[in-house]
Simulated scan of single mutants.
Amino acid sequence: MALATRVFPSLVTFVALACFALRSFASVDYDRKPSGWSVAGATWYGPPNGSGTDGGACGYQGDVGQPPFNSMISAGSPSIYESGKGCGSCYQVKCSGNPFCSGNPVTVVLTDLCPGGACLEEPVHFDLSGTAFGAMAHPGQADQLRNAGKLQVQYSRVPCNWHGVDIAFRVEAGSNPYYLAVLIEDEAGDGDLSAVELMQGGGGGGWAAMQQSWGAVWKYNSGPPLQAPMSIRLTSGSGKTLVASNVIPAGWQPGGTYRSIVNFS
């Protein structure tokens, strides 16, 4: 019995020390990677103080330099571009491994695809506009940070907040009475879309599915001539739905932009 009394405290001590070591290791590992942030690579393209390139693989054209995007945009690696389904999604990015990094996050919207080169070296990569890349720097040090060329950054998917801007629909060139293609932009919240549907004037035919054409452009092929006005129902990436009633008016024209009075909250 005396032997057992000596052995039992030793066993308890060993187990306690092992548990303490495991807790300490877990704590260190958690602190190394803050919750909600993941690691990616980042480069920049276009003019140093510009908005990447006009348009890009989402089709936003010169809108990338206008409100609400304001040149704070990025091309994304295929993993986040998702064949165009990622167009319009918003991310916070920040850097800290360079002396010119402020460490403060900046918000960018995905407007383009970065298909090769450095964009395939990591699972996720952001090819930022010169403006967005420089915005990660300390005040007055944007040029010095851009000189780095490539950085490791942390990123987090965030809701888009367009501060009162409603969703816009631009009718694409080539649209006609039997074919409609619209670029959809400025979706708040998720920023991206998983489905788009069309209802023609009168609503007798109900909702008809549109197909993603490319980037942020969705299309509908009609048998009989299209009947305006037309409403469009949007489903966001997380499944929220929203109807832009009669947003494509009678007398619509290719090249015209028609802004709704709704947006995701």
Rank of each mutant, 00 (worst) to 15 (best):
Q144H: 15
G41E: 05
C90K: 08
P115L: 02
Q211R: 14
I80R: 01
A26Q: 08
C119R: 12
Y220P: 08
S194D: 06
G97P: 00
P48T: 10
P105N: 07
A195T: 05
Y45S: 12
P9N: 09
G237F: 03
R259N: 11
Q66K: 15
S71K: 15
Q200F: 04
F169S: 01
Y220T: 06
F14K: 11
C87K: 04
P224T: 13
R170C: 04
C90V: 02
Q92N: 12
P105G: 07
P47Q: 01
L183F: 03
P67M: 13
S35G: 07
G149C: 05
R157P: 02
V247R: 05
A21N: 09
G164R: 03
V15H: 12
A132T: 08
V28S: 15
E185Y: 10
S35F: 02
R146N: 05
L180A: 04
A195K: 10
S83T: 11
K85Y: 13
F14V: 14
A4R: 15
Q154G: 06
V171T: 05
G50L: 01
Y155F: 11
E121K: 07
A26N: 14
L198C: 06
K94M: 12
G251C: 01
E172Q: 15
Q227L: 08
A148Q: 08
A216E: 02
S24V: 10
H138E: 14
G251F: 02
L3A: 13
V262F: 09
M136F: 01
P9T: 07
A209C: 02
S231T: 07
Q144Y: 14
M230D: 10
N49I: 03
F8M: 12
S83A: 11
E122Q: 13
C160E: 10
F169H: 04
A137D: 02
R170S: 09
A26K: 11
W252E: 04
Q152T: 14
G86K: 08
G204H: 14
P78A: 01
T131N: 01
P99C: 08
V158Q: 05
L242A: 06
F133I: 11
P78L: 01
N49L: 10
D166T: 15
K33V: 00
L120V: 06
W162S: 05
A181I: 02
S102V: 08
V171N: 04
G251R: 03
F100D: 14
L17N: 06
W218S: 03
P115K: 08
H163Y: 14
G205I: 10
E185C: 03
Y258R: 07
D54M: 13
D127P: 07
G191Y: 09
Y179M: 09
A195H: 10
G86V: 00
A132P: 05
G189K: 07
M1I: 07
E185T: 12
G65M: 12
L22T: 11
Q212L: 04
Y258I: 04
V158S: 05
L17V: 04
S238Q: 07
T107W: 13
T111P: 12
D190C: 00
Q141I: 06
A21Q: 11
V12D: 01
G239T: 11
S175I: 06
D63I: 09
L110P: 03
T257F: 04
K219Q: 11
C101W: 04
F126M: 08
W44I: 02
G116C: 10
G251I: 01
P105W: 09
